[in-house]
């Protein structure tokens, strides 16, 4: 299990990264490498050139935006998200979710931009991006664009990013005032990818629900949100179960995942409601 040969270039600016990506067909970005390097070791990907963006200082850091939200640089490591006081204060469910993301050594290396670009349908950050109405900021030779998270994830490991674009930041709008939140994830072994997870917000606007591990992308569950109305968790869970389209794999059948989606939806909403009531 050793990687095949490839070329490698390290860049220090986004422009250089974009140029390098454009210089070679099938070139790919490497950031934390926590999902990518296992695939290299298994020789599941055959990439002629890796563009290492770890040296781009502009992509680091968490800053406040003018609308009261946060802009999280693509190279922000999971561990930085976990311990950021800004995150803990403004997006406590994001803080909570980080505890479920793999393990410390992975969180030390893995980046938000990497997780979002990798687009694993069972990963936490894509699902939270969808829940929080995040904007994915991407840059390519044609300039910068912002893509709503719900439009970003297209299929397992597939996004609307062009081959020569890179994610530079994730922008989170402020949480609606006075929101309660819930985050529930199930995996048989701690730190593994979720079999299913549900994240929820509840406020005077009703509920926002997103689910991961139960669909071919992280899913913003609009039907379940509608069914929730002003507080019907059972209806929301039922709606979610018909809204998701899970598939079978070794860690759970589609039926079990659908079942779990309902269970975790109720739990997440109940937690969110108790937070809201406070």
């Amino acid at each position: 299990m050793k990687p095949a040969l490839f070329d490698y270039i390290r860049v220090t600016t986004v422009d250089d990264a974009i140029r390098a990506l454009g210089s070679c067909n099938d070139a790919k970005v490497i950031a934390g490498g926590q999902s990518l390097v296992p695939m290299l070791n298994f020789r599941m990907v055959d990439t002629p050139l890796f563009v290492d963006i770890n040296g781009i200082d502009d992509l680091r850091g968490i800053t406040e935006t003018s609308n009261g939200g946060l802009r999280i640089g693509a190279l922000t490591r999971h561990f930085e998200l976990e311990v950021s006081p800004l995150i803990q204060e403004r997006y406590p469910l994001l803080h909570e979710a980080m505890k479920y993301v793999a393990h410390l050594a992975i969180r030390n290396r893995g980046t938000i931009g990497g997780s979002i670009s990798h687009a694993d349908p069972a990963a936490e950050l894509p699902a939270l991006a969808v829940l929080l109405d995040a904007m994915i900021v991407a840059r390519g030779p044609r300039g910068e664009r912002q893509i709503a998270a719900v439009d970003f994830f297209e299929a397992p490991l597939t996004t609307s990013l062009e081959a020569d674009e890179i994610v530079t930041a994730v922008e989170l709008p402020p949480l609606p005032e006075n929101s309660g939140w819930g985050f529930e994830e199930f995996a048989q072994r701690h730190g593994d990818f979720a079999v299913v997870g549900v994240a929820a917000l509840v406020g005077k606007y009703g509920a926002r629900i997103s689910v991961f591990g139960a669909h071919n992308t992280p899913l913003r569950a609009r039907e379940a949100e509608k069914a929730f109305g002003s507080g019907d968790t059972n209806a929301a869970a039922e709606a979610l179960q018909s809204e998701v389209d899970p598939s079978d794999d070794l860690h759970g059948s589609a039926d079990y995942r659908r079942h779990l989606a309902g269970v975790l939806c109720k739990r997440a909403l109940n937690n969110a409601m108790s937070g809201y009531a406070l």
């Binding site: 199930f186 048989q188 079999v195 759970g252 059948s253 039926d255």
Partner: peptide, 8 residues
């Protein structure tokens, strides 16, 4: 006795 088996 995985959760999947118990579910079934």
């Amino acid at each position: 006795a995985t959760p999947e088996r118990l579910f079934r």
